[in-house]
Amino acid sequence: MSKTFTKTEVAAHKDEKEGMYIIIDDGVYDITGFLEEHPGGAKILKRMAGKDSTKQFWKYHSKAVLEKYGGKLKIGTVAEVAKL
């Protein structure tokens, strides 16, 4: 079962102790165990942890990358926030 996160909850996961999450489109991904596997290095992932990384992800990656790694890293989705 997929969990729903708020952006505030994702923002709390920005270090290895709390787990490192990023948002891509409406998906939430736990990248904590992927740091050393990332071809671009761990530094960029650590910088993006806890944030919406959609723009940066699509700038450097194709849909194939998300299809390859997304399944094992995706832990949920971002909840829609009502706009008043």
Rank of each mutant, 00 (worst) to 15 (best):
H61W: 03
G27Y: 09
V10A: 08
T77A: 11
G33A: 12
H61R: 09
I44N: 03
Y60A: 10
K51V: 07
T4I: 10
E36M: 12
A12N: 15
Y29P: 01
Y69E: 09
M48S: 12
F57K: 00
E37Y: 11
K83D: 10
E67I: 08
K83Q: 11
D25C: 08
I23H: 00
E80K: 15
T6S: 11
D30Y: 01
E16W: 11
A42S: 11
H13M: 05
E37A: 12
F57I: 05
D30T: 00
A42P: 05
I24T: 01
T32S: 09
M1T: 12
V78W: 08
Y21E: 02
L73S: 04
T8P: 13
G40D: 02
A79Y: 07
G70P: 02
F5N: 01
L35Q: 03
K68D: 11
H61C: 06
L73T: 07
K17R: 13
I75R: 07
W58D: 01
G27S: 10
A12R: 14
D52G: 07
E18P: 06
G70L: 04
I22Q: 00
A11Y: 07
D25L: 08
E37R: 11
W58V: 06
K43F: 14
E16G: 13
R47K: 15
V65H: 10
T32P: 01
V78M: 09
A42C: 06
E80F: 14
R47L: 15
A49G: 05
S2W: 14
G40M: 02
M48A: 14
K68T: 11
K74Y: 05
R47V: 14
K83I: 10
G27W: 08
E16V: 15
Y21Q: 04
K46G: 00
W58T: 03
H13E: 05
V28E: 03
E18S: 13
K43Q: 15
M48Q: 13
L45T: 04
G50P: 01
D26G: 14
K63Y: 05
H61F: 04
V65N: 09
E37P: 05
E37C: 10
A12L: 15
G76V: 06
V10P: 05
A12V: 12
E36Q: 13
V81Y: 13
G76I: 06
W58L: 04
E18Q: 14
F57T: 02
G33L: 07
L35P: 00
G27I: 06
V81F: 13
Y60K: 07
T4P: 04
K68P: 06
L45M: 07
A49V: 02
G40C: 01
E9Q: 12
I31Q: 03
H38Y: 04
A79P: 06
K59Y: 06
T32F: 01
R47N: 15
G33Y: 07
K63D: 08
G76R: 06
D15N: 10
V10K: 07
A12M: 14
D26V: 14
G76H: 08
T6K: 08
I22F: 01
G41R: 00
Y69N: 10
G76K: 07
V65D: 10
G19S: 05
V10Y: 06
G50I: 00
E18N: 15
G71W: 02
A11P: 04
M48E: 12
V28G: 06
H61P: 02
G76Q: 07
K55I: 10
W58Q: 00
